[in-house]
Design a protein around this nucleic acid. Structure first.
Lengths: 148, 148
DNA sequence: TCGCGCGTCACCCGAACGGGTGATTTTGGC
DNA sequence: GCCAAAATCACCCGTTCGGGTGACGCGCGA
């Protein structure tokens, strides 16, 4: 910007000098004032327009257009639902195992508890989810944002 | 655009007239040429700059920026998987019912077949999916894009 | 017309599941 | 330390599920 102003000043000076030089040569006429002024005005206006272009060109207006792109959102557990349903961490864990397609026995092995314990937990989960089968529990759990 | 040019010509004329008027009043000096020229140049350049702004402002550049937004893609069944697994339409239907958390009896009612038939279908589905329980079948079915 | 895939149904049996009840231990907060 | 919640385990009983086998009918293409 500052460079532009300096450049403009320099050019203006040059223009004036050139015009005066020309005048000293053959433009020594009595009423040359109008022509002289018009010339200067025209040249200066040209420079101004060019300057205007220079100044405004970088001023791009950025228009942001949002495009919907399918983005897989990673799972975030709905803590509110967990709280309102009163699900304990252990019960949620068992629900995840159930959703993974494990049998009660397999869950018992991975959770290091007895099969009876797993049955107790899963039963409580069914109660709290208001379902009667593990497949329903899985479906409901996903609906409620309890499991991925 | 044409209006702009006309306006510029008019203004230039006015400026020259005003300047001449001023000169007739009190600017009748021998070497007032430099001041006069500089004045005209400055005013004309200002007008030019303004014109430049006017001319170039509509030059907007549209930048399209893609923004990732969680967009739920509606389910499309993977026909390739269905074909390679050799799943029949009826079996897919039963798989959907299973995923919905229905018991064999409930599925039998909704599909207007006997419970035994449902068991046959579901057994075949388990075979083809390589699983041994309905919860596993649901999980696998979702993995393979067979069910939503 | 024969075979094949598909859908249908039946029976049996063992395993898994779900419901109910009761009990003990662990844990965390007051 | 005490209390409540959570977690643990057990037993019984009925239901559901899954595996295996066998069978019948229908439609379609070789």
């Amino acid at each position: 910007m500052r460079r532009h102003v300096l450049l403009f000043g320099l050019m203006a000076g040059v223009v004036v000098a050139v015009l005066q030089l020309i005048e000293y040569r053959w433009l020594v006429l009595a009423h040359s004032m109008e022509i002289y002024g018009a010339l200067i005005a025209a040249v200066a206006a040209g420079v101004g327009i060019w300057l205007g272009f220079k100044l405004t060109r970088p001023a791009e207006r950025v228009v942001v257009r949002e495009v919907l792109v399918p983005a897989p959102t990673e799972f975030v557990r709905d803590r509110g639902q967990v709280a309102t349903l009163g699900l304990t961490p252990r019960e949620l864990e068992i629900l995840e195992f159930i959703a993974a397609g494990l049998s009660n026995r397999e869950i018992a092995e991975r959770a290091f508890v007895s099969e009876n314990t797993v049955k107790t937990h899963s039963g409580r989960v069914f109660d709290k989810l208001g379902v009667r089968r593990r497949t329903q529990a899985v479906q409901r759990g996903k609906e409620l944002g309890l499991i991925p």
